[in-house]
Amino acid sequence: MLPPSPLKQTIEKTVREEWGRILACLVKSIGNLQLAEDSLQDALVAALSHWSTHGLPDAPDAWLLTTARRRAIDRLRRDRRFSQKQVEISYIADIENAFREEPDSSAIPVKRLEMIFTCCHPALERKTQVALTLRTLGGLSTEEIATAFLDKPQAMAQRLVRAKKKIALAAIPYEIPDSDLLPERIASVLSVLYLIFNEGYSASSGDSPVRVELCDEAIRLARIVGQLLPDETEIAGLLR
């Protein structure tokens, strides 16, 4: 077997590190997790062919974000019902305006934090919270998450689709919760991160690399939360 090409490695690295950041940013402006995820996938496919002929861009993450946004608008336009729906026309206009107004990347950390709270919302089952956090913020594939849970990929895929539907239909917000809700919601986020870590740790004597990766993922996410909410001692405690 050939070793992976440097380009492919760079793309994989970018995806691992930036997936959550870019997705969080997309969701905030598009308001739909499923659409954001599909559009980011589109952008990755485009990146693979574009970067291999034109070389790596200076800022791969910004490239992916811009491309994903265009794809999101394309996807909405392609929707057959689009022409009949006045609501969606104004929706697209809103998205386009939001893109223009929004200075890129500076607001991303906050958006990622907002998305952790969405994924760990108590209106979702705990197992779903963990899976959704790994998918949207950890950038793990549905197959990897299914392996971690010893689930069938199809069942995990359905669970994630159901969760995204509930977030959209019940209007689970993409917001940092109000201060009165914050302690309870942080506890929920920390439980999820702890479960992700444990899932990896308890299996780390085995030979499955995915699970060791879960430990790293939990620590990485906990650090992000810690950086974004420096006053929360519970988070520092988790990392100790």
Binding site: A123, A170, A171, E175, P177, L181
Partner: peptide
């Protein structure tokens, strides 16, 4: 309500 959090409140 604006969103689920408000409805739950």
């Amino acid at each position: 309500c604006d969103d689920l959090d408000e409805a739950l409140k």
